[in-house]
Design a protein around this nucleic acid. Structure first.
Length: 422
RNA sequence: GGUGAGGUGGCUGAGUGGUCGAAAGCAGCGCUUUGCUAAAGCGCCGUACCCCAAAAGGGUACCGAGGGUUCGAAUCCCUCCCUCACCGCCA
């Protein structure tokens, strides 16, 4: 959520930064300002009435103690009460309208974020490794089918299209990857492992910005008023919601494995081959809660931590920086990690590392006490470390052999328990 | 799922209709005393928002959340959430 004071004091700055993202949000700023003005007017009037009522009610108490008549004052307070009811309704309505507008307004891109309208404008920051030399590589669907690593048809029988069921060595590879990533981030990168609930309350989804704007992409449990988390970012970032942390305990670094549930409404037909886009997938997620001054340095290291997974697996990848038009709703700055897929002859996004600055923290009321004892909003960051099915797909495609078998990267072998799949 | 007891400031804990944003204690900060430490004494010590160009200052709200009763609610009533205890069921 954007700071209403910033909008009020520097509307042109806010508008121009939002415009770099999309015209739609920038156009709403004038409405926010108008509502804010009305809201404050109503609030000031309401407070004046409350002050009057408070004062007169005390007077009544004093007069009664002395046995004096209070009928006139009581009538007057009753009138004020009616006015208070009217003004309260008004204030609440403006409040809600303002909140609604602000909740649907995306974060301001960082001033240095590359300008652009969509993915084609995302600059490549660096790349690692090289494309493997493969003669007519099979894609992961063919490999997976041949080696019986997963079974989309039967998964559809269970849950519908867009679901996947890993089988045999495939299920084992999935598990090995999860454990490998968790061990790496906890033992070498200093993250605290979490195993959070997979279903969360609505407030959490609002806190990390999945709601209210993206409700059609979420799975909900209507009756219970709960949502299936679309990423561990939701339960883990919200872990400290409504808290005031000590500056000395920051940064907090969390890593969590969870399944992720996404309806992917509107993405039918795009990038949906095999296990590239499914309604339920596994992911190891990195989350940081930091001091504002340190969030950009922490963003770099978080990205490096995610990259390390691909390096240890020996998979060629590149890092791109998201341009203003392609960045996620909550992010001020974001890098994507894209792994090379020989089967699709394309790069696949396996991680998006975002610095949300105080955008989520405002919604969650997540603060820390600074050296002067003042409460300030924390910065929050998150990034996949990594998303499993696409790493799985890239791995078997990159390590396929002419005889149809698949090698296992050396670092993964202790987790997988074998050097190859055949 | 059932029954019972609770939810008050950083913590403990008083407060059952009016001068209560809230006693007291602890913790914290400042000062005094003291050879140092300890101890003692005194003072300060919640958050959010609004008014004000800003500062100074003033105001409103907040005692789990939301409604209601009342001139006036931490206090009375209703609904919900959460915690604890016991019973039942269960991986």
């Amino acid at each position: 959520m954007l700071d209403i004071r910033l909008i009020r004091e520097q509307p042109d700055l806010v508008k121009s930064r939002l415009a770099a993202r999309s015209g739609e949000a920038a156009a709403k700023i004038d409405e926010v300002l108008a509502v804010d003005l009305e809201r404050r007017k109503a609030e000031t009037a309401l407070q004046q009435c409350n002050a009057d009522r408070k004062r007169l009610s005390k007077e009544i108490g004093g007069k009664r103690a002395k046995g004096e008549d209070t009928a006139g004052t009581e009538a007057r307070v009753r009138e004020i009460g009616d006015e208070i009811a009217r003004l309260t309704e008004q204030t609440t309505a403006f409040d809600e309208r303002q909140r609604q507008l602000l909740l649907e307004m995306p974060n301001l891109p960082h001033a240095n974020a590359p300008l652009g309208t969509d993915a084609k404008d995302n600059p490549v920051i660096r790349s690692w490794g090289e494309k493997p030399a493969l003669m007519e590589p099979l894609d992961h669907v063919a490999l997976g089918t041949n080696l019986k690593l997963f079974d989309p048809e039967r998964a559809a029988k269970l849950s519908g299209s867009g679901f996947i069921c890993f089988t045999g060595a495939g299920a084992r590879l999935e598990r090995a990857l999860i454990q490998f990533m968790l061990d790496l981030h906890t033992r070498e990168h200093g993250y605290l492992e979490m195993s959070p609930p997979f279903v969360v309350r609505r407030e959490c989804m609002v806190g990390t910005t999945q709601l209210p704007k993206f409700e059609e992409d979420m799975y909900g449990l209507e009756e219970q008023q709960l949502f299936l988390a679309p990423t561990a970012e939701v339960p883990v970032t919200n872990f400290h919601r409504e808290e005031i942390l000590a500056a000395s305990e920051l940064p907090k670094k969390f890593v969590a494995y969870t399944p992720c549930f996404r309806r992917e409404a509107g993405s039918a037909g795009r990038e949906t081959r095999g296990i590239i886009r499914v309604h339920q997938f596994d992911k190891v997620e990195l989350v940081k809660i930091t001091l504002p001054e340190e969030s950009y340095a922490e963003h770099e290291s978080l990205t490096a931590n995610a990259e390390r997974v691909l390096q240890l697996l020996g998979l060629h990848y590149r890092v791109i920086e998201l341009c203003t038009g392609d960045m996620g709703f909550a992010a001020a700055k974001a890098y994507d990690l894209e792994v090379w897929s020989p089967g699709q002859n394309a790069y696949l996004e396996v991680s998006s590392c975002s610095n949300c600055e105080d955008f989520q923290a405002r919604r969650m009321n997540l603060r820390f006490k600074d050296a002067e004892g003042k409460n300030r909003f924390c910065h929050t960051l998150n990034g996949s470390g990594l998303a499993l099915p696409r790493v799985f797909a890239a791995l078997i495609e990159n390590y396929q052999r002419p005889d149809g078998s698949v090698g296992i990267p050396e670092k993964l072998q202790p987790y997988f328990g074998a050097a190859e799949i055949r």
